[in-house]
Design a protein around this nucleic acid. Structure first.
Lengths: 340, 340
DNA sequence: GTGATGCCTTGACACGTTTCAATCCGAGCC
DNA sequence: GGCTCGGATTGAAACGTGTCAAGGCATCAC
């Protein structure tokens, strides 16, 4: 590979070339990039001008090889197709972009295997830290990161140990709010429609539902567990429910609820007249659906953004960083799918 | 930093440590990782067992520093909050995950500045290639990548030069289908509601609308251009439209259409009785909305997946890779928002 | 004028991997 | 038996940056 000594439009403009053109040493250029305050103002200006002129772009691989970590974080979510998580991702991405960090986004599709593969990939990339909504309490893939000293923040999941931050929404309360509302409306035979109970969100929302029944001293909960938490799955589950309609369906997310609504309306099951339906997440589209959906609202954008802030705080101040467990309270948004 | 000579549970298990334990040279370990066929079967097995045992994870930074590129690609989309792009991202992520590549996801939020910042970040990360839905025909940020020899594939945008692949959907035809349908339904005064015309998708869909009118020899198109293509923007635009209702509104995406629908229904404007509404993208939620939305369907998942395949083909066979411009045809899905 | 004090700058080394020319070794051939 | 041949392996040299101890150069006080 030819290396032009003076050429300004070379494929690889390195820190050395910049140093040469600016009449300083490579070390100084590195300082301009990483600790500008240590460099005299006029030297700094001169170097920065040369950087502009040559179109120098720092080689992130070399940088993170030497420094031990780069300006990239990992974000691992359960399901990229769910607007709730899309909003979480937007929150994370916005903050990281402001702080000049990149985000490697991974979807685990709620599969342990895929989560582990992606975690391994993140470890290889020497990411600065990882935000993760874990598939289960499976410590395996997190251990991989811990061993390498990569900070993790739990997202929409409580910290499994004291040595990490977490940002969650109180799902037990969410489930309680939803089902208490249904009981007040007169429902007794209630279906819980959700994904696998190994996923914490499902288990907690169901637990909240049971608690509401205990508190009210009435009601029966029927579980309908589906593999995926999509509107298709909701659609299929609702078709099976037609044989024995409950008084109400509490869905563990809005996608399921939208699938259920579609079937009920097609089949002439009046909502809320015959069956009440409650969703979870209050995604934007829940409001616009045929029968506007009662749903439990969570703050996804804020969730992502705050988790991102916690992670960067831990990265930048490893000394005096205090791990925090932040929990938001959900809010029940009542619409027509549960009231006339 | 202490370096245990024999320790098996060190923070940094490198290729050297593996080589030592397996009784081979570092070069051989590297070959096992990158060109297994060059290593004798039993040696390979032995090395792989040691890799397992020590929990060795390859340092991606070092690897891509030396090799000149890593196993990461960039994906830059207009709007992460739009379910259409979320599906595109899923398509890309699925394929890349299968091929053991990581994806750095960036949202440009349709802002040139943000696009350029992110492109720079991707260049720093030495990504293998980039999939991009550009904000405009702005060549600036693409040039940054071209200069460094980083392949790009245009996603939902035609190639601006012959030296790249692209995957698109025929937006002119999409617009033509939508508006021809409206004209057939008797509409004459039609509003085009879309984002900035500097974004190609908007310009093309509008162009298709005009073409339909020319072909039919009738109809008038009123432009209503909004900054963001969100349901909030649709909501606001619709409120302004109330003063002078058109016969129909052709929205450049479903989010806008959903915002429009909401206002019309709240205000007692009958859809389709008084105004017909057509959306674009046929996102899943369009089907479930209060008045099921007529929309132009595109294959977002396939779009992402195929673009990803083209990119990897270009990366893996730089020699005999033939650049392709693939264009899908959209399909008009007629629902109740345009027919009784 | 001299020594001390700080601030800037320097230069060489190390980070962990890939690469490639060189070497080694066993098999096959005359 | 000596020779060649080819596949398997080796070892050392990069890749481009960050770090840090050491050096340089004014300024300032005495």
């Amino acid at each position: 590979m030819p290396r032009s000594g003076t050429g300004s439009r070379d494929v690889t403009v390195g820190i050395k070339e910049v140093a040469h053109q600016a009449g300083v040493s490579p070390g100084t250029v590195s300082n301009v990039l990483n600790r500008p305050e240590r460099v005299a103002p006029d030297t700094r200006a001169r170097v920065q001008r040369v950087i502009e002129e040559l179109g120098f772009v720092r080689n992130g691989s070399a940088s993170s090889l030497r420094a031990g970590h780069g300006r990239i974080v990992g974000l691992m979510l359960l399901d990229l197709g769910n607007p709730f998580f899309a909003e979480v991702a937007r929150g994370v991405e916005d903050l990281m972009s402001e702080r000049d960090y990149g985000v490697i986004l991974c979807g685990s599709a709620s599969q342990v295997g895929r989560e582990e593969r992606n975690m391994r990939m993140l470890a290889e990339q020497q990411v600065r830290g990882v935000l993760v909504t874990p598939v289960s309490d499976n410590r395996g893939s997190l251990a991989l990161l811990r061993e390498r000293g990569i900070p993790t923040v739990m997202l929409d999941h409580p910290a499994t140990r004291g040595d990490q931050c977490s940002v969650t929404v109180d799902d037990v309360t969410g489930g309680r709010l939803a089902v208490a509302h249904l009981l007040e409306g007169g429902a007794r035979d209630i279906v819980f429609l959700g994904g696998p109970l190994t996923i914490r969100q499902n288990a907690d929302r169901r637990e909240g539902a049971l608690r509401a029944m205990r508190e009210a001293g009435t009601g029966v909960l029927r579980d309908v567990i589906v593999e995926e938490m999509t509107s298709r799955a909701g659609h299929e589950a609702a078709e099976r429910l037609l044989a024995e309609l409950p008084d109400a369906v509490f869905c563990a997310n809005d996608l399921l609820a939208m699938g259920v609504l579609r079937v009920f309306l097609q089949q002439g099951v009046r909502v809320p007249g015959r069956v009440m339906v409650v969703g979870y997440d209050d995604i934007e589209y829940a409001l616009a659906s045929a029968v506007p959906l009662t749903s439990v609202r969570q703050p996804p954008y804020k969730l992502g953004r705050i988790a991102a802030e916690l992670l960067l705080d831990e990265c930048d101040n490893p000394g005096d960083h205090a791990h925090q467990q932040i929990m938001f309270q959900p809010e029940l948004i009542v619409r027509e799918s549960t009231t006339r």
